Amino acid sequence: MSDLSGIITFLQRAEAMKNTLRSGYTSDGRTESVAEHTWRLTLMVTVLGPEYPDVDIAKLLKMCIVHDLGEALNGDIPAPEQVEQGDKPDRERADLLDLTDTLPPSTQAEVVALWDEYEAAETREARLAKAFDKLETILQHNQGQNPPDFDYAFNLDYGAEYTNVDALIKQFRTVLDKETARLAGTD
Rank of each mutant, 00 (worst) to 15 (best):
S2K: 07
S2I: 11
L4Q: 05
I8K: 04
I8C: 05
I8Q: 08
I8S: 14
T9W: 06
L11Y: 06
A16E: 14
K18A: 13
T20C: 11
T20K: 12
T26L: 15
D28R: 13
T31M: 04
E32P: 03
E32F: 13
S33A: 01
V34T: 11
A35P: 00
A35V: 05
E36L: 08
H37S: 05
W39Q: 13
R40A: 03
L41M: 06
T42P: 00
V45N: 00
V45K: 06
T46K: 14
L48W: 14
L48Y: 09
G49S: 05
P50C: 03
E51R: 03
Y52L: 10
D56Y: 07
I57L: 14
I57E: 04
A58C: 05
A58I: 13
K59S: 01
L60K: 01
L60A: 00
L61A: 04
M63D: 00
M63R: 04
I65D: 02
V66G: 00
G70Y: 01
E71P: 00
E71T: 03
E71M: 15
A72Y: 08
L73R: 04
N74W: 07
D76S: 15
I77C: 00
I77W: 03
P78T: 12
P78C: 10
P78N: 12
A79M: 07
A79G: 06
E81N: 07
Q82Y: 09
Q82C: 05
V83L: 10
K88E: 09
D90G: 15
D90L: 11
D90P: 05
R91S: 05
E92L: 00
A94G: 03
A94V: 04
D95M: 04
D98H: 13
D98L: 11
D98I: 11
T100K: 14
D101G: 04
L103V: 11
P104D: 03
P104N: 10
V111Y: 13
L114V: 02
L114R: 04
L114I: 00
W115D: 01
D116N: 06
E117V: 06
E119S: 14
E119T: 13
A121V: 09
E122C: 02
E122M: 09
E125V: 04
L128N: 09
L128F: 00
K130G: 01
A131D: 02
K134S: 07
I138M: 10
I138A: 08
L139I: 12
Q140A: 15
H141E: 14
H141P: 02
N142A: 08
Q143H: 12
Q143E: 10
N146A: 13
P148R: 06
F150P: 14
F150L: 11
D151P: 13
D151Q: 12
Y152K: 14
L156M: 15
D157K: 08
Y158D: 01
G159N: 08
D166H: 02
A167W: 01
Q171G: 08
F172I: 03
T174P: 08
V175N: 02
V175L: 09
L176G: 07
D177T: 08
T180Q: 09
R182D: 11
L183Y: 05
G185R: 01
G185T: 14
D187R: 12
